[in-house]
């Protein structure tokens, strides 16, 4: 659609600009301010330049957290995307079954994030949890508060349980947008289920799947509340992801300088991915119209 060329449209954007500026630009400036100073009190501060950045960039615990984060986000994508597509393919296309499946699928997305953690604590505890008790009953020792691997499995299970529905809903929206004529043509040609999926459904879902991949990557990169409630970043530091480490640094130890420098670096990493995201989205947007 061609758009009107008019700079007066800025007036309509001003409210949004102001609201987001107050809640984004001002805080970010404060963070930058902190990241280059050592603050002892309101009137006692020393300019330290890039000192904090150097400290943060050479912090081995931060490197560990970043590696952990990347591994986590990759695993999330590898499991949730195929599973989400599979669920979307299984969901009925119309009728009451479709409405019911939509509501059920979306349910985990509406639960406050810390409650998600609570649900999974209750579910996986060896003494009172169904999952924990069942696994232990099979003779496998399982304790997410003690063993790092078990903690990882629990966090992954929770993450998959919580966010696969988002992928499923996106894929479902993509499937719904395919005209029925495509399937009729496929049926006439005698195409197998696999061929229909590979050559009709999958290509048509490209747009929504791109959004799904990128949203899942972003949000898993920023994950905080669920693992914090479930494992508190432990045992040891085995489930300390970037956000958890940052909050530990800023609120727990009150190291404002390093925490601020870390925030800036964290934000720049996210910004980089965000830019890639936007480029891909633009490409997908134009690809559909041609």
């Amino acid at each position: 659609m061609k758009k009107w060329d008019d700079n007066k449209a800025w007036f309509m954007v001003i409210p949004v600009f102001l609201v987001v500026a107050v809640s984004a630009i001002l805080p970010l400036m404060t963070v930058v301010n902190y990241s280059i100073q050592d603050i002892f009190g309101p009137d006692n501060r020393i300019f330290v330049g890039i000192e904090w950045y150097r400290e943060v960039l050479t912090d081995s615990r931060l490197h560990d957290a970043l590696n952990r984060q990347l591994l986590f986000s990759s695993l999330v994508l590898l499991i949730e995307i195929p599973l989400g597509i599979l669920i979307a393919l299984m969901m009925p296309k119309k009728g009451w079954g479709a409405s019911l499946s939509l509501v059920l699928v979306a349910l985990p997305l509406l639960i406050p994030w810390n409650v998600i953690g609570t649900i999974w604590i209750i579910f996986t505890r060896p003494d009172i949890g169904l999952f924990g008790a069942a696994i232990n009953g099979l003779g496998i020792a399982f304790d997410h508060t003690g063993a790092p691997l078990d903690a990882w499995i629990t966090v992954m299970l929770m993450e998959v349980w919580h966010w696969t529905p988002l992928v499923a809903l996106l894929a479902y929206a993509g499937l719904q947008a395919i005209p029925e004529a495509y399937f009729q043509a496929a049926r006439i040609d005698g195409a197998s289920t696999w061929a229909t999926f590979r050559y009709i459904q999958l290509p048509k879902m490209r747009g929504v799947l791109t959004i799904a991949v990128l949203l899942r990557f972003m949000d898993s990169f920023l994950i905080y509340a669920e693992p914090f409630v479930l494992t508190g970043g432990g045992p040891g530091n085995s489930t300390t992801f970037l956000s958890i480490y940052l909050v530990k640094l800023a609120v727990g130890q009150f190291d404002l300088g390093p925490a601020a420098a870390f925030s800036i670096i964290y934000f720049l990493i996210v910004l980089l991915f965000c830019w890639l995201f936007y480029q891909v989205l633009l490409k997908v947007g134009t690809g559909d119209k041609s």
Binding site: N7, V20, L26, L256, W275
Partner: peptide, 25 residues
């Protein structure tokens, strides 16, 4: 309008911003 794409991108970055970063400020 002037800078519309940049503005839209900037808005988008705030959706992606880690809340933990904004906690202290």
């Amino acid at each position: 309008f002037l800078g519309d794409k940049h503005l839209f991108f900037w808005l988008l970055t705030n959706r992606m911003a880690p809340p933990a970063v904004f906690l202290l400020p």
